[in-house]
Amino acid sequence: MFSTLFAVVIALAIGHGAPAFAAAMRDDGWYQAWLRWLDGRFPGDSFWRGPGGVLLALLPPLLVVALLQLLLRDVVFGLPSLLFGVALLFYAWGPRDLDRDVDVIIDAPDPTARSAALALLRPPAAAGAADAGDPVGRVFSAALRRWFGVLFWFLLLGPAGALLYRLAAIAAEGEPALYLPAGFVDGARRLLALLDWPAAQLMALSLALVGNFDVVVGAWKAGGGARFTLDAGFLAAVGRASVRHELEEDGMQDAALPQALRDAMSLVWRILLAWLALLALFVVAGWVN
């Protein structure tokens, strides 16, 4: 748990303070080259071109990381394991800094610049994410993709879990999804939806605890969160309702987009702090015991 807290702080600090360095370290060119090689290796009607093809893309790098994770676990009091986990979480986080991207939207001088900035919140081949008419929902969708999905699977499976989420997201919504076989992309998107669903549910629960419980639960039910459909679209609905309630409480029902986005990022930060506070409690409990 301590390693997770430490890794999240490092990821946030470097991503915000040194975005160019973070972008260089999080380069996914090696994975895109791997996907192109596989695509050329299995032409025609093959397993690669169906939904199961994503397994061929994911298993080799995940097996390498899982093996290193296992080998480093009890070496030198766990210090190499700690550093390995921090490095993998840092790599999988983002890849762009969410705060900076939202600030660019808020500070945009005209509608054209604002639309271009909003596009940065949406992956190149995203399917089913909030559209251009829902900038608040897009912030929450981006928070799931950049922060909470990675963090949830890191907590569950360690470094391999964080890498699994990031590589699945690249295959499903990144640039490779624009040229890879449709069957492969469909399989990657199904996998990503499976990975997203529990993380989005926990985000909604956290928002209910740090925001207005009744508003969040109502939006969650109306958005389909109570149905097991592997569709995280309810998260955008919950985010919109929460921001609307925040604005109404402040007497700004007709607030401009910049204020709505500020409130959205404030709520996203509250969710993250709630998660980190819970982790801190586990760390303290472990030290006490």
Rank of each mutant, 00 (worst) to 15 (best):
S3K: 14
F6A: 15
V9M: 14
A11C: 07
A18T: 10
A23K: 13
M25T: 10
W34R: 08
W34E: 00
R36P: 02
R36N: 05
L38C: 03
R41S: 08
W48E: 01
G53S: 00
V54K: 03
A57R: 02
L58H: 01
L58A: 02
L63N: 02
L63H: 02
L63Y: 00
V65I: 14
L68A: 09
L68F: 08
L68E: 04
L71G: 03
D74H: 11
V76H: 04
F77S: 13
G78W: 03
L79V: 15
G85H: 09
V86L: 12
L89S: 08
P95T: 03
R96E: 14
D99S: 09
T112W: 07
R114V: 07
P124L: 01
P135L: 07
V139G: 00
S141D: 15
S141I: 10
A143P: 03
A143I: 09
G149D: 11
W153L: 11
G161A: 12
L167Q: 01
A168T: 15
A168M: 11
E173D: 15
Y179A: 13
D186F: 12
A188K: 01
A188R: 03
L195I: 02
L207N: 04
A208K: 04
V210T: 13
G211F: 01
G211Y: 00
V216A: 13
W220H: 14
K221P: 05
A222T: 12
G223N: 13
A226G: 10
A237R: 14
V238L: 07
A241N: 03
G251P: 05
G251Y: 08
Q253A: 15
A255Q: 01
P258T: 00
L261S: 02
L267I: 04
L272I: 05
L272E: 06
L278S: 12
F282P: 00
F282Y: 12
F282E: 11
V283N: 07
A285Y: 04
G286V: 00
